[in-house]
């Protein structure tokens, strides 16, 4: 290892600081006591849907559609989750069944 322990602690502190900056910044810039600008309120209304969409893509970002199983297990399992959730609307069932199906598919 090239770093000393204190250097490693500094590196970890920096990562903590950076992570916390991304989480606290909006709350520090727009404190509850002062009126939030209309533009930011608008973003607060429309951003969540886009952010969760981004999150779906983010959780599938390492799927390679050009090699290996070509993302077929992911496609089938996501489709199963969507279908089950439309049908039963039971969050836990959709997640559990989709995950078990995925674990089976990647072993075939």
């Amino acid at each position: 290892m090239t770093m000393t322990v204190s250097q490693q602690i500094i590196m970890i502190a920096v990562v903590v600081l950076g992570t916390m900056a991304t989480r606290f910044l909006p709350f520090l810039i727009f404190p509850p006591g002062r009126p939030t600008p209309e533009y930011v309120k608008y973003l607060g209304r429309v951003l969540p849907a886009a952010a969760i969409g981004l999150l779906v893509v983010y959780s599938l970002k390492d799927v390679n559609v050009l090699a290996g199983s070509r993302g077929l297990p992911e496609l089938v399992a996501v489709a199963a989750v969507v279908w089950l959730h439309l049908w039963k609307k039971n969050m836990f069932l959709s997640i559990a069944a989709g995950t078990v199906l995925y674990m089976i598919l990647i072993r075939l």
């Binding site: 590196m11 950076g18 991304t22 606290f24 981004l54």
Partner: peptide
């Protein structure tokens, strides 16, 4: 390390704006 952290975790900014 700081710059990399800010980039990897930038999506939290959206979460913050959504949770104000």
């Amino acid at each position: 390390a700081l710059l990399l952290t800010l980039m990897v975790n930038a999506r939290h900014l959206f979460y913050g704006l959504s949770m104000l």
